[in-house]
């Protein structure tokens, strides 16, 4: 695998391979000195055109634990503010001799463009509404950690699917691993066409919750109510929020997930996020190990996984 742009690049076997490798890196991360020299001499640059503390930190931590050198190119401190094009920035970074570029951009497709302009490996850390493949991988790992496998699990993805790169990558990943995915959202927050999406659709969260093995809540952005997509956040919470009352409908083993950052009180009640079934901090912890696995798969030479 040369780049990680989309979950589709991996396929079911590729996802399984990442998850198997992740087991090793979870073990590495638990050590007193959580480092292996697998990527010594490699350079990983994070090129983030959009604010993201957690994803950037997670990638940088992963690279450091593999002993890679890291560089951080963030918009606020860079020549981007002086009008430099993405292509010129990428060319400049590549000229420094880097092995991988981790790209986050608010426009869909930018990682594909970057991959055309550089010989370095490109890892998509989120492009607009489109994809966020490492988020999907860490979510798969987290579910597998609890339930052993995704095959046959009933997963409800709840909320603003239309504008969500997390939803697009997770629909692909979950269904490739054999889960049955149901999207739960008001029609205004679903994509205009779901042709070719291996999903069911519901507008009734109360009906879906008792049958769900996994409830995946998406972040609700406040500006959606000014775009006439919702009458109000209050009505959204009433119909689609995982409130305290609604949480009583969850099964005993049901997992509650959220990609963060959470709007407590909007898509998820404060107390619910702290229930035993909520694995939200586990997702963050697994994120580092999954990204180690991805970086190792793309940049590693195979046999040097010191473990």
């Amino acid at each position: 695998m040369r780049h990680l742009l989309s979950v589709a690049d991996l396929g079911p076997d590729g996802i399984e391979e990442v998850l198997r490798l992740t087991d090793n890196f979870v073990e590495v991360s638990a050590r007193a000195i959580p480092r292996v020299p697998a990527l010594r001499g490699k350079t990983v640059v994070s090129l983030f055109y959009e604010d993201s503390t957690r994803t950037r930190l997670s990638f940088e931590t992963a690279a450091k634990r593999l002993n890679a050198d890291t560089m951080n190119f963030s918009v606020s401190s860079s020549s981007v503010n002086k009008g430099e094009s993405v292509r010129d920035t990428v060319t400049t970074i590549a000229a420094m001799g880097v092995d991988a570029i981790v790209v986050r951009h608010s426009s869909a497709g930018v990682p594909w463009q970057v991959a055309r302009w550089t010989d370095a490996a490109v890892l998509n850390a989120g492009d607009g509404w489109h994809e966020h493949p490492t988020q999907a991988l860490l979510d798969c790992y987290t579910i597998r950690e609890r339930r052993g496998s995704l095959a046959g699990l009933r997963v409800a993805i709840v909320g603003d699917v239309k504008h969500s790169r997390v939803a697009r990558s997770n629909v692909l990943a979950f269904s490739l691993l054999g889960a049955d995915v149901t999207l739960v959202a008001p029609p205004t927050l679903l994509p205009p066409s779901l042709a070719g999406w291996p999903v069911a659709v519901s507008h009734d969260l109360d009906d879906v919750l008792p049958k769900a093995d996994v409830v995946y809540l998406l972040r609700m952005q406040r500006e959606r109510q000014t775009e006439a997509l919702l009458p109000s956040l209050r009505e959204y919470t009433a119909l689609y929020g995982l409130t305290r009352d609604r949480a009583k409908l969850l099964g005993d083993d049901t997992i509650v997930m959220h990609p963060g950052p959470m709007n407590r009180g909007v898509e998820i009640a404060a107390e619910v996020a702290d229930l035993p079934g909520a694995v939200i901090t586990r997702q963050v912890a697994n994120g580092v190990a999954v990204r180690m696995a991805v970086l190792f798969l793309i940049l590693g030479s195979g046999g040097d996984l010191g473990g």
Partner: peptide, 15 residues
């Protein structure tokens, strides 16, 4: 164009 591809690609569409 708004449709199957815009939905998949995460690009806002024109109906």
């Amino acid at each position: 164009h708004e449709g199957e591809w815009s939905s998949r690609l995460g690009i806002p569409g024109i109906p």
